[in-house]
Design a protein around this nucleic acid. Structure first.
Lengths: 192, 192
DNA sequence: GCAAATCCATACTCATGCGTATGTTAAGTG
DNA sequence: CACTTAACATACGCATGAGTATGGATTTGC
């Protein structure tokens, strides 16, 4: 019983360190990733760490690239499975809105953009997502130029929303208010 | 001649330190505000600093509050001077779009939101600006609930745009593209 | 069942950056 | 011109956290 409450005294791999670093980033930001602190949390010491990684920078890099690979997939494939192109965008909005838990790492990285290592990762991820939005708008019947600008606008609104409501804790919006806001977004940013 | 190229060997005041800290924040982020580095830049040593401020934290706090006070005023009063309420929002968008230089501090603070001292300042500033947008939308004839949501959406788009284009250097948008984007924002987010 | 990897602990070094202690110079002020 | 105070210099202490050196403990392959 109780397979991993006491961390299941097995030996660690590099991936274990990367996962631990990622969840620490999600909770306390990139700057909180300190090797001795992480080691304590994993029940080992620095000696272990410096066997798996040459430097702290290498760990952060590996963790970020790991997140970049396994982070998105889920929702995108779900949305592409929807047959009617015009139904995809509203559905995308609602899905994203109600899985904000999955966006905690993204939000955490947004508020760590002074760290030079996260900037290129976030740039790539944001670029891909905006291109996804771009084709979604075109497939919904929007002319190319307008679709690109609308994709930019939509993704900017998403990023800004995370900043304003996650990072800054602006006056706690209620659940009903939030749903109304999402519907307002759909009505404003989505083609009729 | 040459009144302040060689820093004009006069003695410093607390305000001088705050201004220096602010411009350093705008260029290199909050974490770059180190007292010894700042002292070198001002041509003095730590001894001077710890006469004016009790701690580094106090300097950061003072600099942020200084920015909070003298940061906004300009544009808001200019916009309120426009007689036709429906003309204010488009004009606001265009003004803000072309004075992005003035928003460098705001962008710099956006990417330093892991620092606990900047969060409350940014929360207050963002709140005030959103309320300004809110009344602007109502004065343009929008019903209250919709106006509030539209204000949230607009400001989120603004914040997100700064993040995507300032902090992340997403594929250098051209001048014409940018103007077209602004007009698209106006068409999408502004009442006809 | 024993060697060679693999994984980890212990005990350091070293740089950075905040803060302190105390001495020194330049302005005022009576 | 004495003397007080604002503004700075110099030289420390001290905590934090990265990285190293080296040896001990476990696996794993043969």
């Amino acid at each position: 019983m109780n397979a991993n409450a006491k961390p299941e005294r097995t030996r660690l791999s590099a991936e274990d360190w990367e996962e631990a670093a990622l969840s620490l980033i999600a909770e306390q930001g990139v700057n909180a990733v300190a090797v001795e602190a992480l080691a304590r949390q994993l029940g080992v010491t620095k000696g272990s760490f410096y066997w798996h990684f040459r430097t702290r920078e290498a760990l952060v890099q590996a963790a970020l690239e790991r997140w970049e690979q396994f982070g998105e997939r889920e929702i995108i494939s779900q949305i592409e499975a929807i047959p009617d192109p015009r139904a995809r965008l509203p559905e995308l909005f609602r899905r994203v809105a109600h899985e904000l838990q999955a966006h905690r790492v993204y939000a955490a990285l947004l508020k760590a953009l002074d760290h030079p290592q996260v900037v290129p990762v976030m740039a790539r991820v944001s670029q891909r997502r905006m291109e996804f939005l771009n084709t979604a708008y075109r497939e919904a019947g929007m002319p190319p130029t307008e679709a690109l600008n609308r994709a930019r606008l939509t993704y900017a609104a998403y990023v800004g929303f995370l900043q304003l409501n996650f990072t800054l804790g602006l006056p706690r919006i209620t659940h009903e208010e939030f749903d109304a806001y999402v519907e307002h977004m759909i009505a404003t940013l989505t083609p009729a």
